[in-house]
């Protein structure tokens, strides 16, 4: 039957294509593994801000972590070199997780430095990637937003530890920030995807911080009041 020959020809071509794909995946995986290790080290560095000593001098920690981001750029260059053109999303799953974590770390650094939200451009720049797909290896908007949501959880924990270390003003600022973040996320029409599920956790983070602020406020521990009007002190 003619199909026998046609089938073997047809499939042998596809098989070599699949093997090539497997090789690319293998290579990406090995780079991502190293990057993930590096990411864990950065996370460990950033965790020091939860210590009383670290809390007093966050700038030393953020400077160190910022320096570590330089190496991240090298990893992303390695990964993007392995990608066939315009096929970012074919392999996206491999680095999605670490990219979210890195974008969280970047957002955390920026928040500690300036108490502001990191922009998508700044985030991409710290990792040495682009923001738009057309420009090359980029950060997916969803991953950046995931990073922000991870930041919210981290900050709610941070506010608790700040109080323990005697810093009563920080929770107030964090509460304001998370409030803004929450109303920002409410603007988005999220689909029923992982981002949506992660966003559902934001309200608990916010609630936690608000409770901390409440505890601090009724005991008149915070020097700044929540109302922006100057109180004369």
């Amino acid at each position: 039957m003619a199909l026998n020959e046609s089938a073997t020809n047809v499939f042998s071509e596809i098989r070599s294509y699949m093997n090539a794909e497997q090789d690319i995946r293998e290579e990406i995986r090995s780079v991502v593994r190293d990057l993930e290790q590096h990411g864990r080290e950065m996370l460990a560095v950033m965790q020091m801000v939860h210590q009383p000593d670290g809390l007093k001098d966050t700038s030393a920690i953020t400077t160190k972590a910022r320096g570590m981001f330089e190496e991240v750029k090298k990893y992303f260059v390695l990964i993007s070199d392995k990608l066939p053109e315009n096929q970012y999303y074919r392999f996206h799953d491999h680095w999605r997780f670490i990219m979210q974590r890195l974008s969280f770390l970047a957002a955390f650094i920026v928040f500690l430095e300036s108490e502001s939200m990191i922009g998508c451009e700044d985030c991409a720049q710290m990792m040495g990637v682009k923001t738009k797909r057309e420009e090359g290896f980029h950060i997916d908007l969803d991953d950046y937003l995931m990073g922000l949501l991870q930041l919210a959880s981290e900050l709610s924990r941070f506010s608790v530890n700040a109080v323990t270390a005697g810093d009563y003003n920080r929770p107030v600022k964090i509460a304001k920030f998370l409030g803004d973040l929450d109303s920002g996320f409410r603007l988005l029409n999220l689909k029923n995807d992982s981002l949506r599920k992660r966003f559902d956790a934001l309200k608990y983070d916010l609630k936690k911080v608000e409770e901390v602020v409440y505890d601090v406020t009724i005991r008149k521990l915070a020097s700044t009041t929540i109302t922006p009007a100057p109180s004369g002190e």
Binding site: M117, C120, L141, G184, L187, L188, N189, K191
Partner: peptide, 29 residues
């Protein structure tokens, strides 16, 4: 989607950037 096209606080940079994210996400979806 209709609700949010109207009122956002222009002075709040966070809201301004999220407005952009909204547009991007919506067009993708």
């Amino acid at each position: 989607k209709q609700d949010t096209t109207t009122e956002i606080d222009e002075s709040n940079p966070i809201m301004v950037s999220f407005k952009q994210f909204q547009i991007k996400l919506d067009s993708k979806h």
